[in-house]
Amino acid sequence: MKSPDERDDLSRLKPVIVGAAAIIVAVVLLWIVTSVRRDQPFPVDVRWHELMIASRTDAGLVVAWIPSHIGGPAIAIVTSVVVVGTLLILRWWWAAITVAAALALCIAIAAPLARLVARIRPEDSLAEVVPTSFPSGHVAFAACLVTVLALLFRHWLWWVFGAVWVVWMAWSRTYLAAHWLSDVVGGLFLGVAVGILAWAVVETIRRRRAARTADPTLEDRSA
């Protein structure tokens, strides 16, 4: 029978494994896109794009624009400030540090990466038209935010809400032809990987500080 500490270590190890897998998938997809698919979509991208265009309705466009606007760069920054500020007001210091680190890292990676890859968007995009299609920053930010919040608060409702929000965001970006399907998939894995990485690093620091506070001799041993 596992001790409480062993179960706790296992619960922290599982997200790290998922994060490592997400990093691998994101890197492989990035390599494929930059190597052979920078100027042309995958066949599955084309089929999905055609399906989205064929299914467009006025009501669908309204529904699609909601997450697209909310997940825009300016509002994403506002969202970051509001979430972190709320956590600080509640004096959940470590949670605030974790969320701030995750979102800052996500923004710092996704935006420059999209400019570096410079993948062409669909010609009939109803949103952005600049060649910064891969990865989807909207989806990366959404996935990063919900991942880190779900890991912090560990309630199934966070996972359900997060899954719905990310799927809605990914669908909206392809429905508006702002991205290819592979762009939003890349954004998803990037966001999940960054969220887990930030959580794992900050959680490790927090636990070590807590252990040193509980047992001051640990600090003497590490000196």
Rank of each mutant, 00 (worst) to 15 (best):
L87H: 01
R115I: 03
F161E: 01
H155Q: 14
T86D: 03
R121V: 09
R115D: 07
W168G: 05
F134Q: 03
V129R: 14
L149A: 07
L181K: 13
A104W: 02
Y175N: 05
P122M: 10
A177P: 11
I89D: 02
P131Y: 11
S136D: 05
L152Q: 14
T174P: 11
T132G: 00
A114R: 06
A100R: 04
T147L: 12
I89F: 14
Y175T: 03
A140L: 06
R121I: 09
R119A: 09
P112I: 08
L103T: 12
A142Y: 10
G137V: 12
V139G: 00
A111L: 08
A118D: 13
H138D: 00
P131A: 06
S125C: 06
L90K: 13
A114C: 01
A96V: 02
A142P: 08
F134M: 11
E128V: 12
V117A: 06
V164L: 15
L113Q: 03
P135E: 02
V129N: 08
A110G: 01
V139W: 10
T132W: 10
W158E: 01
R121F: 09
F153E: 14
G137L: 05
H138G: 01
R173C: 06
W171R: 03
E128F: 03
V130D: 15
V117R: 03
P112K: 08
L152W: 06
T147D: 01
W180E: 13
W165Q: 00
G162Y: 03
A178R: 12
L149I: 13
Y175F: 11
H179V: 07
A108N: 06
L181D: 12
A143W: 10
L176F: 09
L145T: 13
A104M: 11
A118L: 04
T132A: 11
A104I: 13
V160C: 12
A100H: 02
W171E: 01
V146E: 03
S125L: 12
A108K: 02
R121M: 14
L88T: 02
Y175Q: 06
